[in-house]
């Protein structure tokens, strides 16, 4: 319990402190800056909805990253898995003409499979070749973006568009809105269900037991008959699948098509979210909301107080930096 609050407290302190300094550097009044930030994020229903959109976009990859962390693995490749998921959903969705209640689950699954496969591949490299998953997932990020860029610039490019992207998905495959005229869709409840499902998986199932054992005591797990390779593939696969599903929800709910700019770094920010949430699925929901406020409010802050919105990236980076001493990470990881 206390660990969770300490992480949140530290994060809040960093946001307040560093944020103020940076705002001053930009010639803005910190009070004004924060007012714009929070007002912009929570001020009215539309803004709150948009904040929740950002929350959802962060929640998926953060849950994925957290699962990997619990297994003692560093999934730095959530960004690439997200892209692959979005690519699958966008390219298949563009040609699918089925009623929504069939196509949407199908496309979400496609996204999960694509992201999951991407993650499982890194898991396979780790299992079979002892390849450090930090490096492999990082590399796969870039490869994913380049691969997707190639596809939507060429073979999968929509004939109707001038930009490099897939064709717009048929309306049936669009995720239904939760609040009218906003981007907030069914994606949020789906994400919340995933969070609950993961909590159950980790705490109550045998798979979760084995995954946590590998994460907390790899040698003991090995002696207990748990194959580290199998867990690596499963954990990174699951991690990638969740991130991939997140990418699919961005395509189905927000953009309604796929292009390579679908994520402004959600996969990396998700690492901060996972840490602030202490790698616990339910706490991560709260953390994602906090970061969603930052992401959405930053634009308003830029427009209203003249503070460049990249300050958010700086703050997020600092949060990761300082919170890197979380309990799941300070044991020695078998490499």
């Amino acid at each position: 319990m206390t660990g969770r609050w300490r992480a949140a407290g530290l994060a809040a302190a960093i946001v307040a402190g560093v944020g103020s300094i940076a705002m001053l550097a930009a010639g803005a009044n910190p009070i004004d800056g924060f007012a714009q930030l929070f007002g912009g994020a929570l001020g009215d229903v539309d803004e709150l909805a948009e904040t929740l959109v950002q929350t959802t976009a962060l929640l998926f990859p953060a849950l994925g990253v957290a699962i990997a962390f619990r297994a003692g693995l560093f999934n730095i490749g959530a960004e690439g898995q997200l892209v692959m998921g979005g690519l699958a959903a966008g390219s298949i969705g563009a040609v699918l003409t089925l009623p929504g209640y069939v196509s949407i689950p199908l496309l979400l699954m496609a996204g999960a499979l694509a992201g999951g496969g991407w993650g499982a591949f890194a898991g396979f490299l780790r299992a079979r070749f002892a390849a450090n998953e930090v490096i492999t997932t990082l590399m796969l990020n870039v490869v994913a973006t380049l691969f997707a860029s190639y596809l939507v610039g060429g073979p999968l490019k929509s004939p109707a568009a001038t930009a490099s992207e897939t064709a717009i998905l048929p309306h049936a495959s669009w995720l239904p809105e939760l609040v009218r005229d906003t981007r907030l869709t069914l994606a949020l409840p789906i994400a919340l269900l995933v969070a609950l499902g993961l909590r159950y998986l980790l705490d109550r199932t045998v798979f979760g037991y084995e995954l946590r054992a590998v994460g907390e005591a790899p040698e003991a797990a090995r002696r207990a008959g748990i194959a580290p390779g199998r867990i690596a593939i499963a954990a990174l696969g699951l991690s990638g699948a969740i991130a991939g599903m997140g990418g699919a929800t961005i395509v189905l709910g927000i953009l309604h098509r796929f292009n390579v700019a679908l994520s402004p770094g959600y996969g990396f920010i998700a690492i901060a979210v996972a840490l602030v949430g202490n790698c616990d699925p339910i706490a991560i929901v709260a953390a994602a909301f906090a970061f969603g406020i930052l992401q959405n409010g930053a634009l308003a802050m830029q427009a209203g107080a003249g503070v460049p919105r990249d300050i958010v990236a700086v703050v997020e980076g600092l949060v990761i930096f300082v919170l890197a001493g979380r309990q799941y990470l300070t044991r020695t990881v078998a490499r």
Binding site: R204, T205, V206, F207, G208, Y209, E210, A213, A220, A221, R223, A224, G225
Partner: peptide, 16 residues
């Protein structure tokens, strides 16, 4: 105590 036999004695279906 369950470590080592989590798949046999201490499992009911998928549940621990």
């Amino acid at each position: 105590v369950a470590l080592g036999r989590q798949r046999t004695r201490y499992r009911r279906g998928i549940v621990f």
